[in-house]
């Protein structure tokens, strides 16, 4: 049971951080489909940073700076160049996936996996079997709680929601929706850097190209599933992680009786059902618009 819990926390933590980035972007009015790309930039920068500097703190700082830069670029493309946010987000994903492969090729002369001598600091043997978990796993509940306070109990959170749901209302009180979106994407960039660092350095300690393997899109699905709520969306991400882990366990236990493909599809089928259910429960599906996907 403890091993199962550890497996869920390990696979769920990067997903939750990325989901939080998606939540804040969504609330500001940006459908963030660039999560995958910015996450892999964070993963790549962390491992390459550790190799180059020998310091996790410096590596994380580099990852944060690069992810924030990518987020600002996305903001410029969406807000200043007036590009479609969805297309721009997908472009950012392509840029992240391709750019990291190019960076590894340019630095090391091959696209092989880059290993780091160490990764994200772990909480240590004093926590028994949980000692293999990284500090980002332990910090997760605190981060989610702070995130909830930020979005639901502060003026900033209120203005952020207004910039997404009713930009005109925000402008009428002198606010600037575009600036709020920039702030949201920058905070999201920091979260993507942490999520990428956890994925590549939490337990693996290496970077392989394309290693995000669709987690950014899973996080986006969690944002929609959780209606961009600061607690419900991370809970949805954690649910995906639980289903993924149980899917593996089902393969081990029932793989000879039930087709592997079906068992592998269970988490994704659940995602689709969950997103549909979330939309129905909130009265979505009757019309378009962003508002239906946010908590009310």
């Amino acid at each position: 049971m403890i091993d199962l819990l550890i497996a869920i926390l390990r696979s769920g933590t990067p997903l939750v951080y990325i989901t939080l980035a998606g939540v804040i972007a969504q609330r500001s009015g940006v459908w963030h489909l660039g999560l995958e790309g910015i996450m892999i930039i964070g993963a790549c920068a962390t491992i390459l940073g550790i190799v180059a500097t020998g310091s996790f703190a410096l590596a994380l700082l580099i990852a944060v700076l690069l992810c924030v830069a990518a987020s600002v670029l996305l903001w410029v493309v969406i807000e200043k160049l007036r590009a479609n946010p969805i297309i721009a987000g997908l472009g950012m994903t392509g840029l992240g996936l391709g750019g990291t492969a190019l960076a590894v090729e340019a630095i090391f002369g091959s696209q092989a996996t880059v290993s780091a001598p160490f990764g994200v600091p772990r909480i240590g043997d004093s926590f028994g079997r949980f000692g293999v978990l990284s500090i980002f796993v332990v910090a997760l509940p605190v981060v989610v709680a702070l995130f909830w306070v930020l979005l639901r109990r502060t003026r900033f959170g209120l203005r952020l929601a207004a910039s997404g749901e009713h930009p005109f209302a925000l402008r009428s009180i002198g606010g600037n929706p575009s600036a709020m979106r920039l702030a949201a994407l920058v905070i999201g960039g920091v979260l993507c850097a942490i999520g990428g660092a956890e994925l590549a350095g939490g337990s693996l300690q290496f970077f392989a190209q394309g290693m995000t393997a669709g987690r950014g899109f899973m996080a986006f699905a969690a944002v929609v599933f959780g209606a961009a709520h600061p607690v419900a969306a991370p809970a949805a991400a954690l649910l995906f992680a639980i289903l993924g882990t149980l899917g593996i366990r089902a393969q081990l236990l029932f793989g000879e009786k039930v087709p592997h493909d079906l068992l592998q599809a269970v988490p994704y089928l659940t995602t689709v059902v969950g997103v549909w259910l979330s939309s129905r429960l909130r009265g979505g599906g009757d019309g378009g618009g962003y508002g239906e996907l946010r908590d009310r």
Binding site: M211, I248, Q251, G255
Partner: peptide, 17 residues
């Protein structure tokens, strides 16, 4: 015991399995 990761490029999933 047998399992498929569903991807040839997902080391995190490989580790979990």
């Amino acid at each position: 015991l047998s399992a498929f990761a569903g991807s040839f490029q997902d080391p995190a999933k490989g580790q979990e399995i």
